[in-house]
């Protein structure tokens, strides 16, 4: 089980590669420009498998972009302490940037 840390924007090839490589049990943490995928009504939202309950968005990065009030309800917004907790839970991390 991997923790995928995705910071590339939804229009990038890196973003698509990450989603393609993500296993069913893997967690996905959206950070940097990837947080735009977590906006309610965004086209990318449907591709994230939010129903898995394993999709998270890094709140400081959403706040930095002024979109924290527009995040989809289905995605858990987390801070740095919860990011550390996620890294405890998943034995390996893959960074996509």
């Amino acid at each position: 089980m991997l923790l995928h840390c995705l910071s590339a924007g939804p229009d990038s090839l890196t973003f698509r590669d990450c989603l393609r490589m993500r296993g069913d049990d893997d967690a996905l943490l959206l950070m940097g420009d990837a947080v735009y995928a977590a906006l309610a009504g965004s086209e990318s939202l449907n591709t994230l498998n939010v129903a898995s309950g394993l999709v998270f968005v890094l709140m400081p990065d959403a706040q930095a972009r002024g979109v924290d009030s527009r995040l989809s309800d289905g995605i858990a917004a987390i801070g740095m302490a919860e990011f550390v907790a996620l890294s405890e839970r998943y034995s390996a991390q893959q960074a996509w940037f």
Binding site: S7, M31, G32, L58, P60, D61, A64, M80, A81, F83, V84, A85, F97
Partner: peptide, 17 residues
């Protein structure tokens, strides 16, 4: 971008935990 700032913030959170 903010990636190195994010890394530093994560590092501090690791120690805080």
């Amino acid at each position: 971008d903010e990636s190195s700032a994010r890394a530093a913030a994560f590092a501090h959170a690791v120690l805080d935990a």
